[in-house]
Nucleic acid binder design. Sequence first.
RNA 1: GGCGCUAUCGUCUAGGGGUUAGGACGGAAGAUUCUCAAUCUUCAAACCCGGGUUCGAUUCCCGGUAGCGCUACCA
Length: 504
Amino acid sequence: MPDASSSAGKPRVRFAPSPTGFLHVGSARTFIFNWLYARRTGGTMILRLDDTDVERNTDASVTSIFEGLKWLGLGWDEEYKQSERGKLHRQMAETIFQKGLAYRDFTPAHTGDSEKSGAQGTWLFNPGMRELSREESDRRAAAGEPFALRFRVPRESGRVVAFTDAVYGEQSKAGADIEDFALLRSDGMPTYHLASCADDADLRISHIIRGQDHLSNTFKHVLIFKAAGYVPPQFAHLPLLVAPDGTKLSKRRHGPVVSVTTYRDAGFLPEAFINFLCLLGWSPKNDREQMSRQELIDAFSLEGINRANAVVNFKDSDVGRAPTPANPEDMFDPKALWLNAETIRGLPVEDLSQRLLPIVREAGFNVTPERMLQITPLIRERIKLLRDVLTAADFFFVDQLPPYDPAELIPQKGDSAMALKVLQKAQAVLPNVEFKHDPLDQALRAAAQPLGIKAGQMFQPIRVAVCGRKNAPPLFETLAVLGKETTLERIGQAIRKLDPSGSA
RNA sequence: GGCGCUAUCGUCUAGGGGUUAGGACGGAAGAUUCUCAAUCUUCAAACCCGGGUUCGAUUCCCGGUAGCGCUACCA
């Protein structure tokens, strides 16, 4: 008897998304856990597109899944498409049917719906069809009457289906509580249950690591594996990722926050995103939070997986509407943001600079790699998302500062006369200063003295004059990168704002 | 409705028959500083409810409640 759990060899795991939507964060986490398990155990990671639902499959979805996975950058070892393996699926259905463990159901599709979903009614099987004699069944099939193939679930009292889940432990369910699920649709296409099991068996999958929404389906799968003569693989179900409102993440209800590409486009680092997802429903149990890819591989184990659903704590005040706020930070889980900021800070400047450059260029700014490299250390500790570079370092990129309120130029405990004095002093002093941190520091501090003001009062008007706002990176580094020419030009503009008449 | 699963700070989690119930994010306060950020310090914040077992339950068992999942010829 073939053993699907292949206890002898290395583990073989799979990620099997159905291309009926974009890659969402829950799927991404399932992929990651499978990948981690494979890498941890020296096993094989398989990507299988479960595309048996021709009606709902879309190319856009396939593209989105590959795009998302490509961004994660984890990779896989083997790749399959379920739609190309129909023969295998039908063979397994035939095997089960020939053993008498499945029967033809000639009831037209959907007509059973009303009774099934009735107030009390729980549909379990179709007595008339389940009991149909083989002769009559064959006759009607031969006559061309369409039918679905249903599994003949053993429902005598006392019959239970059982398996051990690596996360949820011993599971068992009475056969009488399992409905006679379909194996083949009336158009001959396999259902998910059949196709999935047939492929898992054929691909010698040893561990099925998937969402907990499949936990109750697993009883059916165990039935299929055994009916077809296979030892079921090991199962490990993952707690679900849910929205703050407690419901399963869905695009319709929660919008783009559930799509992996949204994180990518917002400026998440894939390593930080992976790190974040790993912390939902799994724990290394030693209080570690920030972990590199290798650390995650080394720490990963099925035992560390939690049983309770985990909330992805994004802002869902506008549930139902697509959250596309001006401030993208608002829509993400704060911990994901923090992890991303931490990862950004931990990146070598050169590396970060290279990742920032394409974003800046795409926004329409002409920046050389050399200049980007100078700017990067100034904003590294000030951005949470890569895209924040656009707001944190904007004044480095533009030729003309966007308009700002001249009142911003006024320093603490000062007035516009003081601001003007400061800027004029700067204008006088700066041309003779070397534009490097220390000389600028010394020159500007010295300039504050004769004015009888504090250093802070000296710096503030200059900062606003060159950056266009009060909150900005440290002044001397900023001036050094901006250069003497731009600095003096912007100071001149600020003076004219303060004193349009030029009377002073 | 039936069946299955789950339940520790707002969120992610550690822990486990006797603990000051630990960490992290977020929040608050303070330190530092040319602003902001970063950094450091401090603070507030949790064992769903009821029984049982026990000398002792947040931890074990049972029940309740709540949430989630499945209950399709979707996956």
